[in-house]
Every structure is written in structure tokens, then in C-alpha cells.
Design a protein around this nucleic acid. Structure first.
Lengths: 126, 126
DNA sequence: TTTTTAATGCAACTCAGTTGCAAAAATAAA
DNA sequence: TTTATTTTTGCAACTGAGTTGCATTAAAAA
């Protein structure tokens, strides 16, 4: 497993994630960088960044893949235990700093919990 | 909005959901009934049953649509506040009877919470 | 500067889910 | 029951997210 190469495309994507705390859907990212790089390239870069723990992935309400770099990321290995919030009005998606309490289920071994909260964000809640 | 018609296909799908407490992915359901009915028919029947509150829908770990009929269903209007569990070993998916505690977020209005638990089920946890 | 290895672009593909439309089956009306 | 009305179905074609093989290009190592 070689080190991730510092290509122009990798720099662009990395810079983007450093510039925002919000999460972004891959589709939007592909659109955003459509002039700069290929769709496949984005998917592959995101895979690599996730492997490295630089960003973390999760699914939005529609089942679309989203990525974000939050302060939990790059704690050596990212364990995704925080919820995500998606605004049904403006579409904004973000990580929520809140530790999920994982319910104990008899005779089951729960390894992971994914909590997705939907509603209206501060801007859209008038 | 007319009443849902009692066709052969609707009966089959309904009977299936009455026969199990487990959830099932649409893809699996399409496969299961591939001899009896068309893919589109299944998708449309599930839409209707969901509208009627007879079953409820949610997304599995892979983002694939799943349906289940649990005791919460058909309480007039189904509010999906219970978590779902997906076994990473045998693939079984089921509803979990456990009320999610929805975190309050400052200035946000949270309308819904979707919690997906993954791990190993009683049978696969040796 | 050359060699090695990883990353990219592209086009073609997979697979879940959707849609338009004509034909068939339910229900309602007569 | 028979006819008229409305919903449902099958089919085939489509959409859109995500993947893949492969030749070319660009990084990093030698």
C-alpha cells in the first residue's frame, strides 16, 4: 500500500474539504470539479482519502454517498459514531457533534450505528 | 385517491409481509417474485402499501431500499422512529423495538431520525 | 535522467429504480 | 350480469449513481 500521491486533483479535493465543515454529496463534488477532473478520478480520490482517514463517508437521506472532513477525522482511525444532519429545505448536510448512545440488543453484537437526522437547519427554521 | 385494488400480485406481496417480521430488500423481493410479477409492479405495489401505512420503508447499509411490516405499521399513520438492524454476516435485516432518543440541536428543527445498526445477529454471534 | 509505480481520462459498463404506454384486470354502474 | 370506468400490470426503454479495464500521463524513487 503506497502513500497517496500529491497530484493536482488530490490537492484540489483536499483543499475543498479543508475549507468547509459541511459534508458534500459525491454528485455535487463531481459537478463542482467537472472542469478540473474526471468523475472516476473523484470517486477514486475519495476512496483513498477515506482509507487514510482524512475524510469519512456516509449516506444521505436519498442513499447518495456523502463525504465530510470533521474534527473526528484523522484521529488515526476514524470511527464514525456521530450523527449527520440533512436540511430538507436547503439540502445542507453536516456532521453533528453528539455521541450516539448505541442501544444494547440481547444476543446481538452491534458494531456500528448510523444516525441520520433530517429537518430544517438554523437558516431554514424561520 | 382510490382504494388499493386487491390484485393477485398485491395479495402475494401482502401475504409475504404478513408472514415475516423481518425486513426485505426490494431487490430480493423482485428476485423472490420474479416468476409471479414484474419488477415495476413490485416497486409500485410497495409504494402503494407504504402510502397506506401497511409497510414502512428504509435504507439498508448499502443504500438499498428495504421494506418491513412491523407492529408499528398501520397505526393509522406510520411514524418511523424505531431503528433497524442489519447483520453483516447473514444479511438479515429487522426492525428494532427501541425508541430512539432524538438529540435536540440548537436552532434546528429535527423532524425525523433514521438509525441503522450493524453487527452480528443472535445466530451469527457465536 | 531514467525507471518504477500510482493516478488519470475515457468510454463502456452495472445495477437500482423510474416511466410511458398499450393491454389486462378490478371495481363501479347500469 | 353485462357494460363502463378506473386502476394495475407488463414490457421495454430509460435515468442516474457508481464501477471498471486499459492505455496514457504524472509522481516519486533510484
Amino acid at each position: 500500500m503506497g502513500v497517496i500521491r500529491n497530484t493536482k486533483s488530490v490537492q484540489l479535493v483536499t483543499e475543498f474539504f479543508n475549507s468547509t465543515k459541511e459534508a458534500i454529496g459525491v454528485v455535487d463534488l463531481v459537478e463542482k470539479f467537472s472542469e478540473q477532473m474526471n468523475k472516476s478520478t473523484i470517486y477514486r480520490i475519495l476512496d483513498r482519502l477515506e482509507d487514510e482517514g482524512k475524510v469519512h463517508a456516509f449516506l444521505g437521506v436519498n442513499g447518495l454517498k456523502h463525504y465530510a472532513k470533521c474534527k473526528d477525522c484523522s484521529h488515526t482511525e476514524h470511527v464514525d459514531v456521530h450523527p449527520h444532519f440533512q436540511c430538507t429545505s436547503c439540502g445542507k448536510v453536516e456532521c453533528v457533534s453528539y455521541e450516539i448512545s448505541i442501544p444494547k440488543l440481547p444476543n446481538k453484537n452491534i458494531a456500528q450505528a448510523q444516525l441520520l437526522l433530517t429537518g430544517t437547519c438554523e437558516r431554514c427554521t424561520s
